[in-house]
Simulated scan of single mutants.
Amino acid sequence: MDAVKIKYYFFYLASVVVIIAGIKAVSEIAIILFLAIFISSIISSLINLLEKKHIPKLFSYLVVLGIFTLISLLLSYIVNISLKDFLSNVPQYEKQLQAGVINIISLGEKYGFQVDKKTILDALSFNSFLGITTNLIGSIGTFLSKFLLLIIGVAFILAESKSFEKKLKIIFQNNNEKLEHFNLFSHNIQKYFLVKTTTSFLTGFLIAVILMFFNIDYPILWGVIAMLFNFIPVVGSIIAAVPALLLSLVSADLNTTVILGIFYVVINISISNIIEPKLMGRELGLSPLIIFFSLILWGWVLGIVGMFLAVPITMTLKIAFDSNKSTKWLSILMSDVGKEKD
């Protein structure tokens, strides 16, 4: 019996390797497919909420999909203009930052501190930052070029969802337990994506409002970046804060930058550690180790976009494992149970 189980485990492992290799080979198609499925889950949740208010499904479908499309196009337009303007002004910002650092170094030298100016100024060059930014812009540009295809995919998935439910009932008509497992999986997926998208949007909105209050350039751009990077745990919020804080240091002063840094920390900690766990529940938490390796794996498979999709994809797998008794042990291994009570 043990030998048979080991053979099955090796078979499953080999299947996983083949599937991941296949996804990497068709990464461009896979990205659109994953995004369409995730967006459909969010929109489907909103349509269900409107239906509970006795609003016709077709009207709800058209309204929610139309609003999502308009908001996406508007944000894409604003972000595109802001990015182009920001990149054109980067050399000026770099000179201002280096001038401020030279003043600080000169002040330190008066008190006897010896510092290698050239090394520090080279480290403050925006070239490395621009390399990351350029790659990110390229990925966003590729995504926007396929935005119409994504919207069409979402529309077809939503249109098919009702008949898909009927198909599942026919398939599982003699097995209510499997149908319950799938319904639980579907409910938890929609709950996760709706909550995560809402809290990410709230993060980006608060960041944009605060940056507007302190008159920092391109507040909507940094708000959108904060919203997107909120899908990347821990490191995402740090990466999203760096460009805005550097810009604040250049265009404002040190006190303003420190205050903004505090706001970034408070907003991210409050939303990710207080609001999200209360809305999602501890059962939808992931182990930090699983999060770390999922970022590496899906970043390698799908590129930069894969880092944004890493946690949603991993969470989908965890919820799928949790929905079935035979695979629940995998869900427990992936869970963050350290903070839970016995």
Rank of each mutant, 00 (worst) to 15 (best):
S161L: 03
S270L: 06
K146W: 09
I19C: 08
F205Y: 12
G66M: 06
I207Y: 07
L46K: 08
T197I: 00
E165I: 03
W222H: 13
K24A: 11
L35Y: 10
N48K: 12
I31A: 00
V64W: 02
S88E: 10
S145L: 10
T327A: 07
Y77E: 01
F193N: 00
F205C: 05
L13W: 10
T142C: 06
K117V: 09
D116R: 11
T314R: 08
I332P: 00
V195D: 00
H181Q: 10
F129H: 04
F193C: 01
S125M: 05
I291M: 15
T257M: 14
L35C: 11
L73P: 01
S270W: 12
T314P: 07
S251I: 00
T133E: 15
P277R: 10
F185I: 00
V63C: 09
W298V: 00
I19V: 13
V301R: 12
V224C: 01
I304Y: 15
R282L: 04
I207F: 06
F214K: 08
H54K: 08
Y192M: 07
T197E: 00
I81N: 09
Y192N: 02
K328E: 12
T69Y: 14
I170G: 02
I157M: 00
A244N: 07
E283W: 11
A159T: 07
V101T: 14
A36I: 03
I274F: 14
A99E: 12
L33K: 05
S186C: 01
F164E: 02
P243K: 07
K325Q: 12
E51D: 08
Q173K: 13
A3K: 05
L333Y: 09
D122C: 07
I42G: 04
G236S: 06
Y12V: 04
I29F: 15
P219T: 06
L286I: 04
V234C: 10
I259V: 11
I262S: 15
V235A: 14
I296P: 06
K57F: 08
S15C: 12
N183L: 03
N255D: 07
I271F: 01
G223Q: 01
V90K: 14
I43K: 03
I55D: 00
L211V: 00
V258M: 13
T327E: 10
S72H: 10
I120E: 03
F205K: 05
V64L: 07
F126N: 00
I275R: 13
F34C: 04
V26Q: 14
I232K: 05
E160P: 00
K52P: 03
I6D: 14
S326C: 07
G223M: 01
N324D: 08
S161M: 08
T134Y: 15
K196C: 05
E109R: 10
I239N: 10
L83Y: 05
I81L: 09
G261A: 09
E340N: 11
A25C: 11
S161Y: 13
N215L: 10
L330K: 05
S161K: 15
K57Q: 11
A240C: 08
L179Y: 15
S15H: 03
N103K: 12
A155P: 02
S161H: 08
L87F: 15
V305G: 15
G223H: 01
L168W: 13
S88T: 06
F292H: 05
L144T: 04
L65P: 01
V16P: 10
T142F: 14
N273Y: 13
G303C: 04
V16S: 15
S272F: 01
L333Q: 11
F293V: 02
S88P: 02
I332N: 14
N230Q: 14
V266N: 12
I6M: 09
T133Y: 15
